[in-house]
Nucleic acid binder design. Structure first.
Length: 691
DNA sequence: CGGTTAGGGGTTTTT
DNA sequence: CCCCTAACCG
């Protein structure tokens, strides 16, 4: 049974009485085993599994814990446990209340936000200071939703009192953004939590025990969500030294004030580290001890035997560093997937990946340009999104931007045309238009300038006659649009054919099969593979193009495989948004950001680019303490061997680097770290104004 | 000119 | 991938 493998401190935590329990679990102390043991304990004592809620930071983590429980309990019981990330669980509940919920990627919502922002004319407002850019304002708004429960204006002005004069305009943008989201039927990640919180304020979903993993990274909103759940018992597991999500509103106060908020709380500490060797742990501790100790803890080494001291690798040039690491990985006897290369920023990944490829070592990346960011996959998902939610203008715009001569503005007009042709029903407007006149596009222009008014119908009937299109496309009112050209009409014809083929189908796999074999998609494949097969000289290398084409087809096939588990199209599309980033492709050496490495462990770890400015990141650093925690997380991933590396110079960018202060703190570089003169920081957060 | 579209150069971290 | 700038259109 899972409980019999626990040590004394883990067991006393796992069998704690119902109530408020906080488990301080340092890196590698068997946190997962303790949570699994806790659930086993609850089940053994007869708790109804459907009254247990397990909240984790990634869906993968939840899946692993559930899988471990299935080794000891019948699947029928374990599957009743409610589990997943805050977002996944909220989505599951909301889907019952709002079946048409359409989850959107943050980047999409940012684009929507920007388009609203850009309608405002700040120059005309004669402002005494430059307003924040759309991007920065969006990021702040998003952070606010996670970090605060008060009004946006209050929260914002506390940070930037001088923006008082623009606050009304900011609020106006935010309000319009909220309205547009509802009009388009969109929900953001934050909306999932916000909406379920609102629901819970007047309704109850009762749980006997709620377990929260990675409690140190819960933000204020998630904290409030736990509060509104009001479970009979709470079991929170975390380590304040591993709190690394401040940028997402993670509130270390949640864990720091647990025992004052719940005076009856039990606090358990897991002290014995079974993961890393003594020298690795002592290095980690030396550094992290410079941060304030919130709860007392002292790590004890659970592993004995032969050890390798952590090694500092210092190089003269950036690429020499990557190439040398690739060589060292090539010559080690450890299997590739037992090795991780960990970095602070994704910008390190390309160089490492290229160097590994050079010597023929396979590698996989999590984050960065993921599977779902690939254009060929995004296109298919946009098609599906549009089928699920025909109000999804963003998805439509992305699809039609592939037609040559069509950009985002014209694509948007086309969408409005279809809505008009179908009396508000998009699909109707595409397939069976009831209005055959163009809508009045940009009425202000027409009225003020008297332009374009009578251009609308020019050549509409005859312009595309030679294309030999089927009658229903040839007679479609979209062809009357003055700015559609031949390629656009051909694209529309293929789009029309596909929509006609899949309009009645609801099964995700069948739709994908039709879509991937459609003429529309083969056009996309051709365009993308030609682009990717192009050499620096501009010529297309047929071999390279063929390879790109095969890669695209393989990816599309993978998406099709994923879709087979889903019966309902909407759930499939949302699942791809919700869990998409967690999928990593292929086999080989693991390339990870520190954030992505959380919760994982590897026999051999390389932490690279440990130079001042990059790690710690000095550009937009929230605090040196947080950067130190990031360093702590990175090094405590290592079980047996730890390499810390840096290069003193980047000859491509011509930048000199100094060793990271954490290497001084670790005692690997002699002497106390001296902070360099702060360079004039480029202000990126303010928008350019003409004055 | 104004509004778009298309292509080139720099990047913090995530559900 | 996001921001900027150079061509392009009516």
């Amino acid at each position: 049974m899972p409980l019999s493998t626990l040590n004394a401190e883990q067991l006393s935590a796992a069998t704690a009485p119902l109530g408020q329990n906080l488990i301080i679990a340092s890196a590698g102390t068997g946190k997962t085993s303790t949570i699994v043991g806790r659930i086993a304990h609850l089940l053994q004592n007869g708790m109804d599994p459907s009254k247990i809620l397990l909240l984790t930071f990634t869906n993968k983590a939840a899946g692993e814990m559930i899988a471990r429980l299935e080794r000891y309990f019948p699947k029928k019981i374990v599957s009743k446990i409610e589990s997943g990330t805050f977002h996944a669980v909220s989505y599951r509940w909301l889907k019952e209340l709002h079946p048409n919920l359409a989850l959107k990627q943050p980047s999409e919502l940012k684009t929507l936000f920007r388009s609203i922002y850009e309608k405002r004319n700040f120059e005309r407002m004669n402002l005494p200071l430059a307003p924040f850019s759309a991007t920065y304002l969006y990021e702040m708004y998003s952070l606010y939703q996670n970090a605060s429960l008060e009004g946006f204006d209050e929260w914002f002005l506390e940070k930037y009192p001088e923006h008082d004069v623009i606050m009304d305009a900011y609020m106006d943008i935010v309000q319009e953004f909220e309205k547009e989201k509802i009009d388009y039927g969109f929900a953001s990640f934050n909306d999932l939590l916000l909406r379920i919180k609102t629901y819970l304020e007047s309704n109850t979903i009762h749980f006997e025990e709620v377990l929260v993993d990675e409690y140190q990274d819960t933000n204020t909103l998630q904290g409030a969500l736990i509060d509104t759940l009001r479970p009979r018992s709470l079991f929170c597991v975390g380590d304040y030294d591993q709190s690394i999500y401040a940028f997402n509103g993670a509130n270390i106060e949640n864990i720091a004030t647990f025992s004052t908020r719940y005076p009856e709380a039990n606090v358990f500490t897991l002290k014995t580290n079974y993961r890393s060797t003594a020298p690795i742990l002592s290095l980690a501790n030396r550094v992290i001890e410079r941060n304030e100790r919130i709860y007392p803890k002292k790590l004890e080494v659970g592993r004995h035997g032969k050890t390798h001291p952590p090694r500092l690798l210092m190089y003269n040039d950036l690429f020499e560093q990557y190439q040398s690491i690739a060589q060292s990985i090539k010559h080690t006897h450890v299997p590739n997937d037992n090795i991780a290369v960990i970095f602070r920023n994704n910008s390190s990944a390309d160089g490492i990946e290229a160097s590994l490829r050079e010597v023929g070592i396979p590698c996989k990346r999590k984050g960065g340009t993921s599977f779902f960011d690939a254009k060929e996959i995004k296109f298919l998902l946009d098609l599906l999104s549009l089928l699920v939610n025909p109000k999804d203008m963003m998805a439509f715009i992305h699809i039609f931007e592939y037609a040559s001569g069509v950009g985002s503005a014209l694509s948007k007009e086309f969408f409005q045309c279809f809505l008009h042709f179908g009396n508000g029903n998009f699909m109707q407007g595409v397939l069976y238009p009831v209005n055959s006149e163009l809508p009045n596009l940009k009425p202000n222009k027409n009225v003020q300038l008297g332009l374009f008014d009578d251009d609308h119908e020019i050549g509409s009937a005859t312009r595309f006659k030679h294309l030999d299109l089927p009658g229903n496309v040839y007679g479609h009112p979209l062809l009357k649009h003055p700015r559609i050209i031949q390629d656009g009409v051909k694209f529309f014809n293929d789009f029309y054919t596909l929509m006609n083929d899949i309009r009645a189908e609801r099964d995700p796999a069948k739709i994908l099969r039709t879509a991937t074999s459609s003429k529309l998609y083969s056009g996309i494949i051709d365009m993308l593979s030609t682009q990717r097969g192009r050499l620096k000289s501009g010529e297309v290398d047929e071999e390279k193009k063929k390879l790109a084409r095969e890669r695209i087809l393989r990816k599309a096939g993978l998406l099709l495989d994923l879709s087979r588990q889903y019966k309902e199209l909407g759930r499939f599309v949302n699942a791809m948004v919700l869990g998409g980033g967690e999928l990593s492709e292929g086999e080989g050496v693991n390339l990870l950001t520190v954030h992505a490495s959380k919760g994982l462990e590897f026999p051999e770890v390389y932490v690279v680019d440990l130079v001042d400015g990059r790690f710690p990141n000095r550009k937009m650093m929230s605090s040196i303490e947080e950067e130190r925690r990031l360093f702590y997380v990175a090094v405590t991933r290592a079980k047996d061997k730890l390499y810390l590396s840096l290069a003193k110079y980047d000859k491509v960018k011509k930048i000199d680097y100094k060793p990271s202060q954490f290497l001084h703190e670790a005692g690997l570089v002699k002497g106390e770290f001296v902070e360099p003169e702060p360079k004039k920081a480029r202000k990126k957060k303010t928008a350019e104004t003409d004055q």
